[in-house]
Write a protein that binds this DNA or RNA. Structure first.
Lengths: 333, 333
DNA sequence: TTGAAAGCGCTAACAA
DNA sequence: TTGTTAGCGCTTTCAA
């Protein structure tokens, strides 16, 4: 029984074995199709014996989508992104979709990769990072492929969005620091522009009025730590309430503040982050932060996708994700 | 120009516009096919104008695989897994494959989900977590679908493997602790059995001889921390060299040791982890560990997949991933 | 409720 | 090098 090669059984094989037509087989595997319960059972039994499974490629070729959903996600090894993708994948799978992961190593690759997705007759595309090229988005619109953007800028003409309001995020962070007694504010943000990250940093600055701005090379732990350390103790001491645009950066800042500059958090300076990644709750950091509800994010994304599939001509929508202040010991209260 | 719905152009449309046959179009899009450079250009131009892209579903239906590779990966929000999947996805994409992510929320779902992968005529399956059902593996063998197992037990009859040798992992950890002056060893491992995690813990025990064993509920930070704290200072103080089966657990242990038990690492007790996740290098932990080379892991997995595709009847192989000792400040040297 | 027949968009074998 | 032809495995009218 070892070593033999079998051809995959087709609906034809099943049909013959069950003594019915191929249409009957197709119906037996189509939820809600008109089949006699009796035939259905015969078909299922025959299929079981033969080890038959529906060929999704053929089914997708026939119907108007393959059930595959493209998931654009770079920097997957970042805690937030990993969790986003995990939850998104689970939601999609739960609903019978299949996530196809597209990670670009190089931003220039995004266009081409996204483009090939369309060749799989995807049921939709979810974008969690990178900015897809306008031309491809346009192709999605024309062929009525739903696009959902997570924490991204609005894309002209097509794409529903689910976002954590940058304004409310920045304001909530400020509010947390204020209510913990901070009065001289600072913000740490990465270079370059991102809708959500830069957005909430700006909202924080605007709400705070006077504000010391620190800039790190990117969103990484090490860049954030280096940025804080480079500024030096004297300069940092002018601030007693620091908002870091992401938890990862906040954790880098915490290590910079304590380990490199010898400051005491929260006594000398209080720190608030954003996201509530798992690491924020680790004992050594215990970081106060603004949590964005990623479960809700995933569910909303899925809802937008499904409703858009049913009614392609719906106006374009923007949904907001719940935010919660989480007080831990990097702030005083 | 807004609101119109277009049908997707097919190779037929392109053929007509370029004044050639559909085969010519097909050839123009097949690397290494016999086409005159001139025709190829005409076709590409026409395709560009029409916004045509090859329908991978149809292509996959015709050929023997769709270019999709199933990636089985649960607990994606764990640092190691996230990085594994990221690197794997990049390697696959670089070679023209498309990773389809399968995350099971519930272990019972794995079987069904894995099964549906076969319906997409996958070019292969990579397993990074969970244990796929024997029956499906058998189906893969029969239909010659390559299976690559990462840090998993051998599966009867089919599946190439890439692993970090549990024996060498455990031994290397012990060696690190010994060379840093530890003499009384302990190991922290999670309940349940996993090929790699349990494997290296056992190898460590065996090589160490006498050894205090701590068990945590699972592989999480919090379970590890709780396990260490629950044991108490007196008991833990009997150990001066602790190996934790993963970095995540080691970090939990570190917080338990320092924050909950008030011990000094590395003075009172030295700690070594496994994986070298990014967090291990964070200032607050600075954990000594055994690094498994995840880049190599991904590349080897891809190689196994490709070679198996070319030569399905190759004997089953097991490849090893490079291991490197990383000394940081949770050990004395 | 069932079956026959017509494609879905593509590639591969064959002939020209 | 090119075009013609025959499917890949499925779903879906349309009649029965």
């Amino acid at each position: 029984m070892t070593g033999e090669t079998n051809r995959k059984p087709t609906s034809f094989d099943v049909a013959r074995r069950a003594g019915v037509s191929r249409s009957a087989v197709s119906r037996a595997f189509t939820p809600g199709a008109a089949v006699a319960e009796d035939t259905r059972k015969k078909v299922l039994a025959a299929a079981e014996e033969l080890g038959y499974r529906v060929n999704s490629l053929a089914r997708g070729l026939q119907g108007d989508h393959s059930g595959i959903v493209g998931v654009l996600a770079s920097r997957l090894d970042t805690p937030v992104r990993a969790r986003q993708v995990q939850l998104l994948a689970q939601s999609l799978i739960r609903d019978g979709f299949r996530p196809m992961l597209v990670t670009a190593e190089n931003p220039d690759d995004v266009a081409g990769l996204f483009d090939t997705l369309l060749g799989y007759s995807v049921a939709g595309v979810v974008v969690t990072s990178d900015t897809p090229p306008q031309s491809t988005i346009e192709a999605c619109r024309k062929t009525r492929v739903p696009v959902v953007l997570i924490n991204r800028d609005a894309v002209v003409g097509w794409g529903d969005r689910v976002i954590s309001s940058p304004d409310r995020s920045g304001q909530m962070a400020l509010c947390m620091l204020r209510s913990s007694g901070a009065t001289r504010f600072g913000v740490l943000e990465p270079q370059g522009h991102t809708f959500s990250v830069t957005g909430r940093a700006n909202a924080f600055k605007e709400a705070a009025g006077a504000c010391v701005c620190l800039t790190s090379k990117d969103q990484s732990y090490s860049a954030a730590r280096a940025a804080v350390s480079a500024v030096g103790r004297a300069e940092v001491a002018r601030v007693d309430g620091l908002f870091c645009a992401t938890d990862l950066m906040a954790i880098g800042a915490l290590d910079g503040l304590r380990l490199d500059l010898g400051l005491n958090v929260p006594k000398d300076i209080q720190v608030v982050g954003f996201d509530d990644i798992e690491q924020a709750s680790w004992g050594a950091y215990d970081l106060s932060t603004v949590r964005q509800d990623l479960e809700a994010q995933a569910d909303i994304a899925l809802d937008l996708l499904k409703s858009r599939t049913e009614t392609p001509d719906l106006p374009i929508r923007t949904e907001f994700v719940p935010l919660t202040p989480i007080y831990r010991s990097s702030t005083k209260s």
